[in-house]
Nucleic acid binder design. Structure first.
Lengths: 353, 353
DNA sequence: TTGTAAGCGTTATCAT
DNA sequence: ATGATAACGCTTACAA
């Protein structure tokens, strides 16, 4: 059961090795006649490029760039730390990561970073997308430079990235809705939705998913915009709970949840705590789950996303097919299935909102 | 930034290339004095074996064996189909899978298969474990033959397999418990647990996890043993629901759920459907979720497990480190977050219980 | 116990 | 537009 090599292909096609190679690697300068003979030989023999040999000949050392928004967001801090923590192990596998931080909600900052990378000739780029024409262009430029691009956590509509690694926010919102419905049994409830900003697509998608499921049987209170800031969230939620005694559930689709948790913490004894569902495991949300202050955390498991991104970039750089995977299914954490705490923590780890 | 090669190591240690190689590959026949010099050189230079080059030199073609119990169990049918479906894509990556079916609950059948593999000199074995001394021995034998071993879905306590890919059943049960509690708000409930057999460790673990969470606030009815057979499950559950009008929840930790679903389907209108949670997505459980006959399916996502197994076996065969991963978190499916149906189905796919 | 050297299937360079 | 060939870093057979 011998696997055919490119030499076999060349011989079969009656051309030299170099010519066959030119076809396989699209180097041009081949007469169409030769090219077609080579292509025929390739699928007659069922030739597949030996990636190991190719990488050896190139003394492959992958350089990938990971572009993350940075700011006071606990989730991306966590994400960044995960990439940093992976670097050591990856070093031994001959891949180097460059983690680049750009200003959040600042497309031109992202664009500048991407443009630099296009000239740097890295072997692949992963980025947290945003809906912005300038970002679409930057991605196009990368692709033209033959650099694979993956979007992470947030996709870029209209851009032809090679793959997206992240959850479907609409589905996540619907899931939250269903769980809230479940927690209400048959009684009618009143749900308060919280987002960072309604203009953020992910947040809006989550809320609309949740509403879709609940609106026929329950009341949906006006959306609170907390701008992902815990003190703002705290103030607004406290206010709403005070004004509206009928609230039975809270669904927070964004960040700033430390503020929400503080409100729940000091809820008067007499008042029944509303069902609370929020997104992303973080030190404070974990603790709140353990203490019974909230019920459910929907988590997109950045560890998983990180691994898929690195693996995906490697495969793209090797010109291998990406495995056809189901979309990432977010994890649903309750008090009882929290993952064990990681043993070590990165030096720079911070507990921001 | 040159990466050191084994030649560098040899030179640095003042020995020949072959000697350095003997140390790295533990081939023996090296004077301790030389060996230690080589080892010193290795970590002075930070040498890491180039797996690509090694695989090229060996004309690597991985042969992995996947040993699955077969019988009338929908879950393992699904699992097997996943492996079969992956084979084509894997072919191009120079890995061949041999999917071996053994009789379920039949340790000596499993043992025989494993013993054959030990002599066959495959590059790695994945198997669905069971608590049995003879299986422990068979694994030991494989390991002695330098064959990597992974357990899948069910671990083998006491065996030194290289890794386990599967969920923590106790945790899964506790999660089910919490969700049931959530669905009961503050009212007291009465839960009927169903298993295949209490002697099956996985099932027992799930039930005990569930009970742990619920027993203080709710009633736990006697466990139904349905031996993973849908007609048996159907009969028993129908009986219990008839005898006991106070049942508010059902947790099925095993298989045979088609029977359970049939009972729920023909529940009289006047009677409120109990909260229902069961394990593993299958055609019938999916449909029941869509129809609102059950509330939640806890799924260990065999697609994911399959990929981890293949990737893990490959890494082990390459003598690379396994990535430190969190344990597999089962997915919690409700009606609203069901994964899209796969487009193609394997020829042999069957819909058994 | 130690050393030498011919592959492995590519990439990339140079010559024609 | 085509062809020949020296690396790449390892494994393995063989020689000393």
């Amino acid at each position: 059961m011998k696997v055919p090599t490119l030499s076999d292909v060349a011989r079969h096609a009656g051309v030299s090795y170099a010519t066959a190679d030119r076809v396989v690697n699209a180097r041009g300068r081949v007469a169409e006649k030769s090219a077609s003979r080579v292509r025929a030989a390739i699928d007659e023999l069922g030739y597949v490029r030996n990636v190991d040999a190719a990488n050896l000949a190139q003394r492959r050392f992958y350089r990938f760039a990971i572009v993350l928004p940075v700011g006071s967001n606990a989730f991306f801090t966590r994400m960044r730390n995960l990439f940093l923590a992976a670097m050591e192990q990856l070093q031994a596998e001959r891949v180097a990561l460059e983690v680049i931080e750009v200003k959040a909600f600042h497309p031109s900052s992202l664009r500048a970073a991407l443009d630099r990378l296009a000239n740097d000739k890295v072997d692949g780029v992963a980025l947290v997308g945003s809906e912005d024409a300038t970002v679409v262009e930057a991605i196009e430029k990368l692709r033209k430079a033959k650099i694979p691009v993956m979007t992470l956590v947030s996709d870029v509509p209209g851009a032809d990235r090679n793959a997206y690694v992240g959850i479907d926010n609409k589905v996540a919102g619907r899931t939250a809705g269903r769980l809230i419905a479940l927690a209400h049994s048959s009684s009618r409830g009143r749900v308060v939705p919280i987002v960072g900003a309604l203009s953020a697509r992910d947040h809006a998608d989550r809320i609309s998913g949740m509403s879709e499921v609940l609106e026929s049987q329950h009341d949906i209170a006006p959306v609170i915009e907390g701008y992902d800031q815990h003190d703002l969230v705290e103030a607004r939620v406290a206010q709403v709970l005070e004004d509206d005694r009928d609230v039975t559930a809270i669904y927070s689709a964004g960040a700033g949840n430390a503020g929400l948790i503080r409100v729940l913490e000091r809820l008067p004894e007499c008042r029944r705590r509303p069902v609370a569902i929020l997104h992303e495991l973080a030190p404070h949300s974990r603790r709140a789950l353990e203490n019974g202050l909230i019920d459910i955390v929907i988590d997109q498991r950045p560890e998983d996303e990180m691994m898929r991104v690195v693996e995906g970039l490697r495969r793209l750089a090797d010109r291998r097919a990406l495995p056809v995977t189901d979309p990432i299914v977010p994890a649903i954490f309750v008090r009882e299935n929290l993952p064990p705490l990681p043993l070590a923590r990165t030096e720079r780890e911070r507990e921001d909102t």
